[in-house]
Design a protein around this nucleic acid. Structure first.
Length: 233
DNA sequence: AATATACCCAACCGCACCCAG
DNA sequence: ACTGGGTGCGGTTGGGTATAT
């Protein structure tokens, strides 16, 4: 077992104070993002480097777009999840100003439920036997089940949707493999993800962003097929 | 009004990957 | 080729808030 990334003793944990935030912002503005391990000490923070990195990436970065997800962002997340599975960082990489944590939370709290309400198994994006799709399910994507529909969630779903409890019609565990027959899984959703490189993506990563692994891209025929991401036709 | 329950989100944890030495 | 440190990622947790009873 490897050593913890930092000495846990004498380290602050939990919510960040405004002073801590300011120290981190000031330091990064002066010195940029660098060695996270040494940053806390240099910045005068009693935090471990991982905590600083997370705070910066998920909350303090100036280019973050905070607030509700737009409808097109929701659609994009759903489509990318069908394509990529739980690879939140990859998904977030296609949503400017969004973080993997934010996307993951939004998926778990809103979109999962939305798909379940539509009768779609969120794990593999196929129509679920237990929850047959509502009529015009796809049309409800942005209406009845839209974010905050706690009413619907409570009426139509057990309180804690278990991760594997919902068995889909066919046992396809890999989300990406569900794409083999997309038309069955996502009615009315255009999954024709023609992704390639509008500026940096995918071959040239942004500053701190990993490129898509070639192997990942290779395994997906949609990658590198066109210069634009045509999603909403 | 008080209590219980559900929901949301920030943060933590541990593992995996990458890369320099 | 191997090793260990640094970093990134995904899963999970805990606390605050909203809603229901």
């Amino acid at each position: 077992m490897r050593k913890p990334c930092c000495d846990k003793q004498d380290m602050n944990k939990g919510a960040w104070s405004k002073q801590e935030d300011q120290k981190l912002i000031d330091y990064i503005q002066k010195h940029g993002e660098g060695c996270w391990r040494t940053l806390p000490q240099a910045a005068g923070l009693l935090r471990c480097g991982k905590s600083c990195r997370l705070r910066w990436i998920n909350y303090l970065r100036p280019d973050l777009k905070r607030g509700n997800f737009a409808e097109d962002e929701e659609d994009l997340i759903i489509k990318l999840h069908a394509l990529l599975g739980n690879r939140w960082s990859l998904i977030a990489g296609r949503l400017p100003g969004r973080t993997d944590n934010e996307v993951k939370n939004y998926w778990n709290s809103h979109l999962r439920r939305k798909l379940i309400n539509m009768g779609i198994d969120p794990n593999n994006h196929r129509i679920s036997c237990k929850n047959p799709p509502l009529q015009n399910a796809a049309n409800t994507l942005h209406s009845s089940a839209s974010s905050g529909s706690k009413e619907n969630a409570k009426k139509n779903e057990p309180t804690k949707p278990n991760h594997d409890g919902e068995k889909s019609c066919d046992l396809v565990s890999d989300a990406a493999s569900g794409l083999e027959d997309e038309s069955h899984s996502l009615p009315d959703l255009n999954l024709d993800l023609n992704i390639s490189m509008p500026s940096p993506f995918p071959c040239v990563p942004k500053d701190n962003q990993k490129p898509i692994l070639e192997s990942e891209a290779r395994s997906d025929p949609h990658f590198f097929s066109s210069p634009t991401l045509v999603l909403f036709q």
